[in-house]
Design a protein around this nucleic acid. Structure first.
Lengths: 225, 225
DNA sequence: GTCTATAAACGGATAGAC
DNA sequence: GTCTATCCGTTTATAGAC
């Protein structure tokens, strides 16, 4: 799918046929952790995929665990201030609450923007973040991420005054979960037989079609009885 | 399908202070695989949790992999015909299509019913199923499960004639995903700071409050622009 | 049938040569 | 700084005693 040579990296490396070893480790580990999970991925697999000796990983990153944390930090840190978009919207709106559509759209678009960032495997990133929600035991998610989520929570509670606050939180749980789920990209549609959606290989368009679904869900009446 | 002598193991079914070793292995493995994942769970952990010697696992089940498949088979096979409830609803409705609410409600309730079934760790089951969607590489889901999902797909397409068929499939992807996500029980709400939902430890009530959210999402207009 | 003891391979991490 | 060779604990699975 992607070529092995990434020449455009940084202002560096005139002669080397490949990018920095550290960078290759990063990319290989990101891909393997994403596709196979943390526990099922060995350092040796990473070393082989990155074409570096095993010890190189322990040199650049201290341990396997530290490598994973570094990956999360790189991915999330690439655009740690993505609530900027929410800030901008709220300034423009003056004092009036944002609509649910605006908030959800901003969230999804910031995710898409982030997924196209400078990491080699932009397409893979979404799965990685998604996996962060499901991988048990590993709490490598930086605090700044928590703050961003809190911003969204407040905005949604303002946009949905007719719902109890804890119901909004519950629905935000669903909202974030479904986005993570789509990002994780697990092909659940195999369960539905051969009638896969139009673009099974295109999580980006899938994320976009999430918008009406989530808005409809968030705005649903509190009870259906 | 435990037709092979579950109770008549050597005729000493009643008398032991604990249940059969095989049963204890089942329960312990189900719990550990669920909580920690397949790769991160070792046979020794299972043996210790089940209070059986290590070799006992390899004797009753051939390998670690076979143990996991057996667990999936037991859990799913416990009520493999849970589309029965959908059948019943459709018969009662005569020829008229079911409502989205009816279909989604039936799905969620059948999940809840299943989760209270004869397995020891009913509460844990939901996570296990949820994990089945996300664990990479392992396709242990029986074919009957696929058929059930297909039944739901057809019912939903009938209930939502104003939506393109592939859009219904996409939304069903979201629908199944969000249920699986809640079943997986990963505490994503930690991201939202200290404002956890009213019942973080109660996935059952969480599943129930999923109903209006999903119905609202399924019935949302195709476009929000 | 059940379990102890062990095999054979793999895991992460490191010492030390270059 | 980089890599080879190795350490040492853990893994799954099995052989063989009881």
């Amino acid at each position: 799918m992607q070529s092995d040579d990434d020449i455009e990296k940084g202002g560096r490396s005139a002669g080397r046929p490949r990018g920095d070893a550290k960078e290759r480790i990063f990319d290989a580990a990101e891909k393997l952790f994403t596709e196979q999970g943390y526990a099922a991925t060995s350092m040796r697999m990473i070393a082989q995929a990155a074409s570096v000796p095993l010890a190189s990983i322990n040199y650049h990153f201290k341990s396997k665990r530290d490598l994973m944390e570094a990956i999360y930090r790189r991915v999330l840190g690439a655009d740690g201030r993505r609530s900027d978009y929410l800030d901008k919207l709220e300034r423009e709106a003056g004092g009036t609450p944002l609509t649910v559509l605006q908030i959800v759209q901003t969230f999804i678009e910031s995710i898409l923007r982030l997924s196209r960032k400078d990491t080699v495997s932009g397409a893979v990133f979404k799965q990685l973040i998604g996996r962060a929600y499901f991988e048990p035991g590993d709490d490598c998610i930086p605090a700044e991420y928590v703050q961003i989520m809190d911003r969204y929570r407040v905005a949604l509670q303002r946009a949905l005054p007719e719902l109890p606050e804890d119901e909004v939180v519950r629905r935000m749980y669903f909202f974030v979960g479904i986005v993570a789920y789509v990002m994780a990209g697990r092909d659940v549609m195999q369960l539905l037989g051969h009638c896969a959606p139009a673009s099974p290989k295109d999580p980006e368009s899938l994320l976009r079609s999430l918008l009406p679904f989530i808005v409809g869900g968030m705005q649903a009446p509190a009870s259906v009885a």
